[in-house]
Every structure is written in C-alpha cells, then in structure tokens.
Design a protein around this nucleic acid. Structure first.
Lengths: 214, 214
DNA sequence: CAACCTACCTAACGGCCGTTAGGCCCACAA
DNA sequence: TTGTGGGCCTAACGGCCGTTAGGTAGGTTG
C-alpha cells in the first residue's frame, strides 16, 4: 500500500528517520545519526533524498496515508453498527494508526508543530482532509440523533485529537494493551466521567493504567 | 519583538525566551535571536544565565509555579462547591495558566518533550507534584461518589491533560474566549457527548467555536 | 569486451551555533 | 576625586550541521 516508487534502501532509511524524529525530534536528529543507524554515511542519503526536509515530508506523507487507511477501514467495518460502537471503532483506529505500521504516524503527530514551514505547507492539505473526515463523522452522529447537538463539534474534534495524540507521550505499545486504552478513552468521551445516580451497565471492572513507562 | 521594555534585564530576557521557545521551539531558537529580541548581544546573555539550558529550566520552573498557583486558587475558591463545578473550575484554572501570566506555562507544555535530559530531570519532580494534585483531586471526586468509579483515573488524567494542553495548538487567547472553551471542555468530559434520551439541563445555548486561526 | 547504472564513499565547504575571554562605559559610593 | 561593580559589547573559538562534488566497486546489459 506504499507509493509505487519506493526503493528498498529508501524504505530502510525512512524507517530509521521516522523513529529518530519521533523519539529525539527532527531538529535534534542529524543526518549523520540517521545514516549511521542504517549503516551508511551521511552523504549517501542524498542519493535517496534531496534534502533533510524532503525526508521529513516523506515521513509525514506516509503517516497520513496510514491514518487515512485506518479511517477507511473503520468506516467500512462500522457502517452498520450503532453510534457508540462506530465512535469507539474510529477512536481505536486512530490510536492503532499511531502505534502500528511503524513510527510514521506518531512521528507526524509529534514533529509537525515545529516542522519547517515549507514542509508544513506541503502536508497541510492532507491533514485538513483527515480532519474533515472526522468532522463529517461527528456531524453525521449529530444528524442521526446520537451525539448531543449542544456539543461543539470543532471543540470536540480538537480535544479528542489532543487526548488521542497525547498518548504518544505515555503509552508504550510494548507494555500496554491498545484495546484497553481505546475502550477507556472512547467510553470516557462518549458517556462522560460523572457518576450517574443510576448507571446500569457496570459490567466492566477495569482498574489501572495500561502502558506505563516514562 | 516580543519582549516588553521596562522590566529589569533578566525578566525581560526570560519573557522573550519563553515566547520564542513556545512559537519556534527550543532547538530552533538561537541565543542570538533571543538577544536581538531584547536589544542586546548574544554574549551578554551569559551575564544573566549560565547556559541556554539554564534559561529553559528557568522558563519551565516559572511555568510550573504558575500552574501550581492556578491550582491553589481553584482549590480555595471551589472548596465548598458541588463536584461538577469544582471540576470545571480546575479545568478553567489549568487553561488559564496556559494563556495568562505570559508564555511560560505554554512553553513548558510544548517544549518539555524535546528538552535536554538534564533539564527534564531537574523539572520532573515539580511536574510529578502537579500531576499528583490532579490525581488526588480526581480520587476525592470518586470517594465522594461524584465521579464514576469505573473510570480509570490515570487514563482520565492523561487524556484530560492531553485535551487541555493541545489547545495551545489551536486556541488563540486574543481571538477566542477562554471561559467558553473551558466550559465546553469541562462539560464534554464530565457529561460526555452522547445524546441522552433524556437530558434535563439544556439551559445553556452555546454556539460555535471560540478561537480559530491556524 | 565495453558501457552503464546503482548504491555507496571520501572529503570538504560554508554557515550557524553555544560559549568564552577580555574590555568598555557609566552610575554610584567613599 | 578615585574606586567599584553591574551591565553590556566585541571578537573569536571549536564544533556540529546540511549539503555537494567527485570518485569507485560491483552488477547488469549490449
């Protein structure tokens, strides 16, 4: 599902770059670091990429592709389901995109803010398109009478994104279970956290947090 | 030109540094930039600070002080209030800390992730202390029967922080109203977003999103 | 065989960075 | 008047950075 022109060496470099951009940051990762990680020299990177910015843009694009694919899949699988389940499915899909298929999506989320303006501008349309799909999803939920019309959809989308994306700073996919987090987050957002005077479905007995680690 | 012009040297430098760390990032802000902003030369900064890292640590410390003070105030003012109001008050206080008293808190939130390990380690205890206060707050709400015991407090705290802190990327305090955002967010988290079959208190007539601007 | 292409290397260039040493100016105290 | 020290400047240092030019080994193709 990658682009058609991806060469073998190029993919390895991109993997390493995305991983290092994610955990160290774009600016604090040198091309010599990336090159050493894949066992070549810095200058050789320029056979595959025109510049460091171009590498970052490639990481961002791949990240967006993964997110879009995840949304697609959730859209298809949840087409006939009740609203809450569909919502939960999309939350899980977004979180899964952050931790599966490599560090591209997570790197996108963490590095976009400080990315060079040229790179930001190039990727912005793709980001807007993804946001628009979420907006459309939430608007349909309102239209169907499943989501409270008093809720501001922009604020909901932005804070939901904030909550989901912030997980890259505390969730460790190796130590925690993604489904647990996704369920907890989706239920929290959907039903709120207040103790209802009457709350029938208390079957779940979750207690503590999944992915620890700082 | 970010710095104001009448305060003593160190404070003015810190203001400028915090503002630039916030909007450009720590690594991509040079000391020559900071110095130029306050009208001096780069070398002169070393009369006030021992290193660039020390400047960042000072920004972080000030950011934490502001957050702690905001929490204090909310704690005092909300001591006798019902749970939902107290929760809302603390959400508002945290958001206010991000946008009042200068860019220190916001800079802390955005720059901490990529801060040099030495700086991170120095500031971590203060961050943990602030987190602990929120955990205690939420635990009391559960103990008082106001917050759903099935909700995972760590996940709630982390996602709530994520939602609130992410606002620095879309909320413009000059264009939007903080109270509106705080109310929307607090209500969203507290009561959820699902359209209840019966939802009594629909007195509020909020409309659309506050701070736009990309 | 020769020609060519792919994937890398070596070596260096200019530039910006954090940081430092030493000097200068001026308000103010004695 | 002569210190004294706070606040800033100049000039430079070494270092790491992104980037480039030119070269080379090995495989493929005619």
């Amino acid at each position: 599902m990658t682009g058609s022109e991806t060469r073998p060496g190029r993919q390895r470099i991109l993997d390493a770059a995305a991983a290092m951009f994610l955990e160290r940051g774009f600016r604090e990762t040198s091309l010599r670091d990336v090159a050493a990680d894949v066992g070549i020299k810095a200058g050789s990177l320029y056979y595959h990429f025109g510049s460091k910015d171009e590498m970052l843009a490639a990481v961002f694009r791949r990240g967006m592709e993964i997110m879009q694919a995840a949304f697609d899949e959730a859209d298809l699988a949840g087409s006939g389901e009740p609203a809450e389940q569909r919502f939960h499915r999309h939350v899980r899909a977004h979180l899964a995109a952050l931790y599966e298929n490599g560090p591209y999506t997570a790197a996108h989320v963490t590095s976009f803010r400080l990315a060079p303006p040229v790179v930001r501008d190039e990727i912005l349309p793709a980001r807007d398109a993804y946001e628009a799909r979420w907006t459309a999803l939430l608007e349909r939920l309102v239209a169907d009478g499943d989501l409270d019309p008093a809720v501001s959809i922009p604020v909901l989308r932005l804070t939901l994104f904030g909550a989901m994306n912030a997980s890259v700073e505390w969730f460790d996919p190796g130590r925690g279970d993604l489904d647990t987090v996704a369920s907890a987050l989706a239920r929290q957002v959907w039903s709120g956290v207040a103790a209802g005077p009457v709350r029938p479905s208390d079957v779940n007995t979750h207690e503590h947090p999944p992915g620890a680690g700082r």
